[in-house]
Design a protein around this nucleic acid. Structure first.
Length: 285
DNA sequence: AAATTCCCCAACCGCACGATA
DNA sequence: ATATCGTGCGGTTGGGGAATT
């Protein structure tokens, strides 16, 4: 049921990621660091564009600013790994704030937003690789599940609050995940993506359905039955079905796909609305 | 030992926003 | 009102060292 168009989309993303290009990155040399430090000692912090122009460095102000803030300014805990206490702060702040890296960094003296962003990105990647659904340790997750009833944390980026992505976050009943389409997709598809056959060859629907129905199937070790149900929604989101056809066709489409209405976690009409909204966000197949 | 792949993190990009002219 | 500039932010990329083949 995962569509070929979705596989194609993944392949395209991968291809564009690997597209060739001339490298624009240039590491800072220690002489450049010394020059920048000396300039700031004499002139103080002010207009970064002037720093770029007047320091003698062939760097723009933006680059100077970044180098200073992330590496040269006094008080940084450079090369020190995050302590367990710091990690706990990062997780709990992230559960509430989302990807507000600079806000999180303000809670941790000596740490930069870039450092925290990198830490969380690596952590999320590891979770995904290991099939771990929640990116937070249990003590953080527990704070947001309220003994089984849904009490979701604030979602960052309030402008997207009503988006289908946010609704999916609620549907999934996860402690907290990021409200970007990529993160939602990562979570929704993590069981597929861990199919040992191929990282991008997704499990076919019959296998998913079988896993859903069988309580001892491997999928259920990763996802709750409710979350498995919601994978059906994910499947719909990336089907080849066209949103332009009428509701009757939609019902027929679901029926043809081998699903019974009673087994769907949502009414078909609502499912269709979700699919249409998601299509708008993700662009045409 | 050499080639390839993986992984981390520093550096970059585009965009948004506020201040100012 | 709007154009420009400076700054800050989050997402992404790619260099290079480590690990694996």
């Amino acid at each position: 049921m995962i569509s070929s168009s979705w596989n194609a989309k993944l392949r395209l993303m991968e291809a564009s990621r690997k597209g060739k290009g001339i490298s624009r990155k240039r590491s800072w040399r220690s002489e450049e660091d010394e020059t920048l430090i000396k300039y700031i000692k004499i002139n103080g912090l002010g207009n970064w564009n002037l720093v770029g122009k007047n320091s003698g460095l062939s760097r723009d102000g933006k680059s100077c600013r970044l180098r200073w803030l992330n590496h040269l300014q006094p008080g940084l805990k450079k090369n020190l790994p995050f302590s367990e206490k710091e990690k706990l702060v990062i997780f709990s702040e992230h559960a509430v704030l989302g990807n507000k890296w600079s806000d999180i960094a303000r809670q941790l003296p000596g740490r930069t937003d870039n450092e925290i962003k990198n830490f969380m990105n690596i952590h999320k990647k590891k979770c995904l690789k290991n099939g771990v659904i929640s990116i937070y340790p249990p003590e953080i997750s527990m704070k947001y599940t309220d003994n089984g009833t849904t009490e979701l944390p604030k979602i960052a980026s309030s402008g997207e609050h009503d988006s289908v992505v946010h609704q999916l976050v609620e549907l999934m009943d996860l402690p907290s995940i990021q409200n970007t389409e990529k993160d939602v997709i990562d979570i929704l598809f993590s069981p597929y993506l861990h199919n040992p056959q191929s990282s991008f060859e997704l499990l076919p629907q019959p296998q998913l359905a079988a896993a859903h129905q069988s309580s001892n199937a491997s999928l259920n070790n990763v996802l709750s039955p409710e979350q498995c149900s919601n994978l059906l929604i994910a499947d719909l989101l990336y089907s080849d079905y066209s949103m332009d056809t009428d509701l009757d066709s939609w019902l027929q489409f679901i029926s043809n796909s081998g699903w019974e209405e009673t087994s769907l976690p949502l009414q078909p009409r609502l499912l269709r609305e979700y699919t249409a909204s998601a299509s708008r966000i993700l662009g045409p197949n």
